[in-house]
Amino acid sequence: MSPTTVHRRRLRLGAIAASAAAVLTAGLLVAASAQAAQGCEVEYNVTGQWPGGFTADVKVINLGEPIDGWDLEWVWLEGQHVTQMWNAEYTTTGETVVAEDLGYNAEIATGASASFGFNGYWAGVNTNPTEFRLNGRVCDGSVGEPTTPPTSEPPTGSAA
């Protein structure tokens, strides 16, 4: 083989490799920017109850794409509140409770779960929450596209 033929082959192979790398990079960028399907289910169980207090276990099951960082939100309509939580950190605003991962339990693979528990206070009636939201999406056992809040306020009416 002549040196010119070898040089041409190397140039063609280099061009093919560069094209393949460009296609692969473009595919990775598209995959990274695509939004993952979300879905979850929550198992909420009161494991002990006494006058004015109770203990509950919560299991969050990820039915969608893997999660890295989570918060679970629910509302109590009967005035209950958390007094102590383990395996998650909590904040409350009025009747709303938000439990957040602690870092070591932030990742939930598809089909896997994260669990936490808490002690709470109640007076009158201790009803279970009726709805849970994982990272803002309702946990109803279905899988769907992520929900995003609107970027601007919709018009409130027409000018007269």
Rank of each mutant, 00 (worst) to 15 (best):
A37D: 04
Q38D: 15
G39I: 07
E41W: 13
V42L: 10
E43L: 14
N45L: 15
V46Q: 03
T47M: 01
T47R: 04
T47C: 10
G48H: 04
G48N: 08
W50N: 09
P51F: 04
G52C: 12
G53R: 08
F54D: 11
F54G: 11
T55D: 15
A56H: 02
D57W: 00
D57C: 07
K59C: 14
V60F: 11
I61F: 03
N62I: 12
G64C: 03
E65M: 14
E65N: 14
E65P: 13
D68T: 09
D68S: 13
G69Y: 04
W70F: 12
L72P: 04
L72Q: 01
L72M: 04
E73I: 11
V75G: 06
V75D: 13
V75Y: 08
W76F: 08
W76K: 00
L77A: 09
G79W: 00
H81E: 14
V82F: 10
V82A: 10
T83W: 08
T83F: 13
Q84R: 02
M85W: 01
M85N: 01
W86H: 03
A88M: 04
E89W: 03
E89C: 03
T91Y: 07
T92H: 05
T93A: 15
G94A: 12
G94P: 13
T96G: 02
T96Y: 01
T96A: 10
T96L: 06
V97L: 02
V98Y: 08
A99Y: 04
E100L: 04
E100Q: 06
D101M: 03
D101S: 11
G103V: 13
Y104K: 09
N105H: 07
N105G: 12
A109H: 05
A109Y: 03
T110M: 04
T110K: 01
G111D: 08
G111V: 05
G111Y: 05
A112G: 08
A112R: 02
S113D: 15
F116I: 08
G117E: 09
G117I: 06
F118T: 02
F118Q: 01
F118K: 00
N119H: 08
N119Q: 10
G120I: 12
G120Q: 09
G120C: 12
G120F: 11
Y121A: 15
W122A: 02
A123W: 00
A123D: 02
A123E: 02
G124L: 09
G124E: 10
V125N: 01
V125G: 00
N126F: 07
T127E: 12
N128R: 04
N128S: 13
N128C: 06
N128L: 12
P129V: 06
P129S: 04
P129A: 06
E131A: 14
E131W: 02
F132E: 02
L134V: 14
L134P: 13
N135Y: 14
G136Y: 03
R137Q: 10
V138Y: 09
